[in-house]
Structure formats: structure tokens, C-alpha cells
Computed example of a mutant assay.
Amino acid sequence: MWVDEWSLQAACRENEPDELFVRGAEQNKAKLVCSGCAVRTECLAEALDNQIEWGVWGGMTERERRALLRRSPNASWRAVLEAARSRATTVE
């Protein structure tokens, strides 16, 4: 099920925002916060659909997100990720 008010359930909601807007090796630490987040997919879709340029969102750095956007610049990432989640849930 897709969560529209995802930020209320985000694993990072009580962290300092600056912890997710870091550079270099510090990004790996920021990505760890996302690893067990229940709304990681919604967060990533938000960043991709709105082409957010900075920070770690949904467990991906800005460089990783830019690579996805180059491959599919006009995609509705919410639709793509929601469909992928639905398929994965059906398989389990």
C-alpha cells in the first residue's frame, strides 16, 4: 500500500536534517538510516518526481538519482515504484 503522508513515518523524521545532506563517505552513513525505513519507496519517488538535487532520499544519493533520471527522464517514478512494489508483494 502506498503511503501519501510518508514523511510522518520516515525513519529519519527525528534525525537532524543536515545528516542527510552530506558529501562523500558520509553519504553511506546517511543511506543506512534509509535501509530499514518503511516509507523508503515513497521518499525516493518524491525525490525523483520532483528532481530534488541534494541529499540522500529513499536510500539514494543525488548521483544515483541523476543516473536514474537520465535513463528515464519523463517517467512517473511514483507509478514505476508503486508497480514494482505491487509485483514484489504478489511474488512473496
Rank of each mutant, 00 (worst) to 15 (best):
M1Y: 10
M1A: 15
M1E: 13
W2S: 04
W2E: 13
W2R: 01
D4W: 08
E5D: 15
E5G: 11
E5V: 06
E5F: 03
E5N: 14
W6H: 08
W6E: 02
S7C: 02
S7Q: 15
S7T: 05
Q9Y: 02
A10C: 06
A11N: 09
A11V: 01
E14T: 15
N15T: 07
N15G: 04
N15Y: 12
E16C: 11
D18A: 14
E19V: 12
E19P: 10
E19S: 11
E19M: 10
E19Q: 14
E19A: 12
L20I: 04
L20P: 06
L20E: 06
F21S: 08
V22T: 05
V22P: 06
R23H: 15
R23F: 14
G24T: 00
G24K: 04
A25W: 01
E26W: 01
Q27K: 07
Q27I: 04
Q27F: 05
Q27N: 00
N28L: 03
K29C: 10
K29S: 13
K29G: 13
A30H: 10
K31F: 03
L32Y: 01
L32S: 12
L32K: 15
V33F: 10
V33M: 05
C34L: 09
C34E: 09
S35D: 11
S35P: 09
G36M: 05
C37D: 09
C37I: 09
A38H: 04
V39W: 07
T41N: 03
T41P: 10
E42W: 09
E42S: 08
C43Y: 03
L44C: 03
L44Q: 01
A45F: 10
A45L: 04
E46T: 14
E46S: 12
A47H: 08
A47C: 14
L48F: 03
N50M: 09
N50R: 15
Q51W: 02
Q51P: 08
Q51R: 15
I52W: 12
I52Q: 07
E53H: 03
W54R: 13
W54I: 11
W54Q: 13
G55I: 06
G55E: 08
G55R: 05
G55Y: 05
V56K: 05
W57R: 01
G58D: 07
G58I: 01
G59W: 08
G59T: 11
M60W: 10
M60E: 09
T61M: 07
E62C: 07
R63K: 04
E64V: 10
R65N: 00
R65K: 00
R66F: 11
A67D: 14
L68T: 05
L68W: 11
L69A: 11
R70H: 02
R71I: 07
R71N: 14
S72V: 06
S72C: 02
P73Q: 00
N74C: 07
N74A: 06
A79K: 03
A79Y: 10
A79F: 00
V80N: 00
V80P: 08
V80I: 15
L81T: 05
L81A: 08
L81G: 00
E82I: 02
E82Q: 14
A83R: 12
A83D: 12
R85S: 02
R85L: 06
S86N: 11
S86K: 13
S86P: 13
R87H: 09
A88S: 13
A88K: 06
A88Q: 12
T89N: 10
T90M: 08
T90V: 12
V91G: 03
E92A: 15
E92T: 15
